[in-house]
């Protein structure tokens, strides 16, 4: 097969690249080295800062392909899909990795369908099969109860999405060199059916729980909405954001974008702190792959403790204020 090279899809917003663009490069670099192929970062957007494109090289890319146009300012899946399908047909990449974000999880299945290839969502592990050189894609399914390893033996490119925060960007190496290539946008690729009217960014800065290193989440044990202010204070001290269990969201103490679990979001932060959350299997499905899990709960038999690295059995209304106080002292010291 003449399909070669690893592509990672950078994500841009208002001309800036999202952190996940760099995280994907560290995944892609490992695969490219194993296959002895090039790592290419694909950027579709408008007015992307040139310094940011250099950063893609410094953080692992051998080449950057940029498609820029005013009409690509907004993510319209039909148009983005047209652009990507066109590029794939012409340049025949072997593997494409994208972020398992709202837009990545919309664009990639759209493209995979049209070019008739496999796509594996939300991979937690990627590797190359020794004999066949196929991409091995491991992902959790059935509420995290199983880990399935999947491959795409007969179709190319092999496509996968990866959760944000599930890998770290490579160290910045300003001596790395690579090519930045601009690809002219063919206006016939514009799909004029869907129009973006407006965007409103929530004032609630907690909304993006999937991109934070620290998530402090509250559940039924928080007792009332006002008590979430304590979680916010704790999250602020730890440089994180506030998440919630389904119970807390259903009671109106937090909003749906904060919901962690099977019917909410899956998060993989460096630290997940579960406060007053018992740990129903649906909740565990959304957070148990976090790097470090800390739980505070009054019930010593709560399931959340089974997945915790550090657990405190006690009244959260005693533990939280003291913890916040100690952390404040740490900052001062």
């Amino acid at each position: 097969m003449d399909y070669r090279n690893i592509w990672t899809m950078a994500e841009a917003q208002n001309g800036k690249l999202k952190e996940v663009s760099f995280e994907l490069l560290s995944r892609g670099r490992a695969l490219a080295d194993k296959l002895n192929e090039s790592l290419v970062s694909v950027v579709i957007g408008n007015n992307i800062d040139k310094e940011q494109l250099d950063q893609l090289i410094f953080r692992g890319a051998d080449e950057v392909l940029v498609v820029e146009d005013e009409s690509l300012d907004d993510f319209i899946v039909e148009t983005y899909s047209n652009v990507l399908v066109d590029m794939i047909k012409e340049m025949k990449p072997n593997i494409i990795l994208a972020a398992a974000t709202v837009n990545g999880r919309t664009l990639m299945p759209h493209v995979a369908m049209r070019i008739h290839t496999g796509l594996t969502a939300d991979c937690t592990d990627l590797d190359i099969e020794k004999d066949t050189k196929n991409l091995l894609q491991t992902r959790p399914a059935i509420g995290g109860n199983i880990l399935a390893t999947i491959k795409t033996p007969q179709h190319r490119p092999q496509m996968a999405t990866v959760r944000p925060k599930s890998s770290k960007p490579l160290e910045l190496d300003p001596n790395r060199t690579g090519k930045i290539r601009y690809i002219e946008f063919d206006r016939s690729l514009l799909d004029n059916r869907v129009r973006k009217l407006e965007a409103r960014h929530d004032q609630d800065r907690n909304i993006n729980i999937q991109e934070s290193d620290v998530v402090v989440a509250g559940g039924k044990g928080m007792k009332k909405a006002e008590n979430f202010a304590m979680l916010q204070e704790l999250a602020d001290r730890l440089g994180g954001v506030v998440g919630a269990s389904r119970d807390a969201v259903d009671r109106g103490w937090a909003v749906y974008p904060q919901q962690v679990g099977l019917s909410g979001k899956t998060v993989t932060p460096k630290l997940y702190m579960a406060v007053g959350i018992s740990g129903a299997i649906q909740h565990l499905a959304g957070m148990k792959t976090s790097e470090i899990i800390v739980a505070i709960n009054s019930d010593p038999d709560a399931a959340i403790f089974k997945v915790s690295d550090f657990g405190i059995t006690g009244d959260l209304f005693d533990v939280l204020p003291l913890l916040i106080k100690k952390l404040n002292e740490e900052v001062k010291a």
Partner: peptide, 22 residues
Amino acid sequence: PTRVVKIESPKVMRNGIMLSAK
């Protein structure tokens, strides 16, 4: 296009530090 190669049950237990605050 895709094939499942392997299914595993991940380990859930972390056996972390447990402290009581009574």
